[in-house]
């Protein structure tokens, strides 16, 4: 059954007209698909059918291990978003970008296509100064209305710095990770395994933590 109804499909077509250049989506699943994988597979297929500017590739998490390693994918279902050159941009979704998360996903695609507002100079220079590898994991539930805000901030950081990669993780699909990081409130952003921030935090606050790493 189709995930998008006709109304959403039309709204998405209109919004995606704002994309400038092509965006590459790499979806990682496996031959015998896990139950959440089938939904996410359907999602990326339906989305890619709406516009030529979305280039979709589907990979088998085990058979295409080299590609998974290249994009640092360590669990499925996973969607990796890259710009037109398909160079690894550090932006991933583990789970379905459903519920409110559709908004962060669409925003990511529009930004990756080359249409985005410049960041204030003070912030841009702080991002340019990041010299260590940073891994942001943003834990969300799909019923959380402000979680996309936290995902958007983390993913924008990843776009702006080659040192940063950022994942959206639907905690209901990966409860063992939720337990490992003691996630009981979303959005929660885990920074390099050692630090955590609860709630939607302005980019400055994440940069403050990164500076302390």
């Amino acid at each position: 059954m189709a995930l998008f109804d006709e109304k959403i499909r039309q709204q998405l077509r209109d919004i995606l007209k704002n994309m400038k250049d092509a965006v590459n989506l790499s979806f990682f699943t496996q031959e015998f698909e896990c139950w959440p994988c089938t939904d996410v597979h359907e999602f990326v297929k339906e989305l890619a059918s709406l516009t030529d500017t979305i280039k979709l590739s589907v990979f088998d998490f085990q058979k295409d291990k080299a590609r998974a390693d290249k994009f640092r994918v360590d669990k499925i279902p996973a969607i990796v978003l890259n710009g037109k050159d398909n160079a690894y941009a550090g932006i991933k979704y583990y789970g379905l970008p459903g519920g409110y998360e559709i908004n962060s996903f669409i925003q990511d695609m529009i930004e990756l296509s080359g249409r985005k507002e410049p960041l204030p100079a003070a912030i841009a220079s702080r991002i340019a100064a990041i010299s260590k590898k940073v891994h942001l994991q943003v834990y969300v539930t799909l019923t959380c209305p402000f979680c996309p805000g936290a995902v958007a901030v983390a993913h924008r950081l990843a776009q702006e710095s080659a040192m940063v990669e950022a994942d959206m993780i639907d905690v209901s699909l990966f409860p063992y990770l939720g337990q490992r990081y003691q996630v009981t409130s979303v959005p929660m952003t885990i920074i390099n395994e050692t630090h955590s921030l609860v709630g939607v935090q302005p980019m400055e606050n994440i940069l403050d933590v990164i500076k302390k790493l």
Partner: peptide
């Protein structure tokens, strides 16, 4: 204990 069981948004956090 904020974020470790102390919360405000039940829509967000009820699944936990």
């Amino acid at each position: 204990l904020r974020g470790k069981g102390v919360a405000n948004c039940s829509t967000c956090d009820a699944p936990f």
